[in-house]
């Protein structure tokens, strides 16, 4: 009975985590293809909600990592952990880009716009380079004999 309950909890959390990851992906796409281009096109910053979304979803991912019952999701699908990590990092980079644009576009000035856009592009490149380097040095490897 205990095992059935544990499995039920794990699979329920797995479904919930799946929804969270779908939301993370959708948010990243919205930031990259809607919010950021909208700010650049209009020249005005709006409400920047990227970090709020990232913080909320990070809480769920953090709980998944700490609680053993929830962590079993990563053992059931070994690809899930690197997928989650990459998705959250991408969301963080998009949220940071939106934040930089929001700060730079808070004053209407064409020169400030150019500097802000350049800073954003440089930040994205550097962050993705750091991410790639990190996973090159410390790849996430799951071996079946780890269980």
């Amino acid at each position: 009975m205990g095992k059935i309950l544990k499995n039920f909890i794990t699979f329920s959390w797995l479904l919930f985590l799946g929804l969270v990851l779908v939301l993370a992906g959708f948010s990243t796409l919205m930031l990259v293809f809607h919010d950021i281009p909208g700010m650049i096109r209009t020249g005005f910053a709006g409400t920047t909600a990227g970090f709020s979304i990232f913080g909320t979803l990070s809480f769920v991912v953090m709980i998944t990592g700490f609680v053993p019952l929830f962590r079993r999701c990563y053992y059931i699908f070994p690809w899930l952990y690197p997928f989650t990590t990459m998705l959250m990092i991408n969301l963080f980079i998009a949220a940071l880009a939106e934040f930089i644009l929001g700060q730079g576009f808070s004053v209407t000035d064409s020169q400030r716009y150019e500097i802000t856009i350049c800073l954003m592009i440089i930040m994205v490149i550097i962050c993705r380079f750091i991410m790639s380097l990190y996973f090159k040095i410390r790849p996430i490897v799951y071996q079946r004999d780890d269980r």
């Binding site: 991912v61 953090m62 709980i63 998944t64 990592g65 700490f66 962590r71 990563y74 070994p78 952990y81 990590t85 996430i140 490897v141 799951y142 071996q143 780890d146």
Partner: peptide, 10 residues
Amino acid sequence: SFTKRIKQGA
């Protein structure tokens, strides 16, 4: 190591 990695990420 995999569990440790997950916890570090958390």
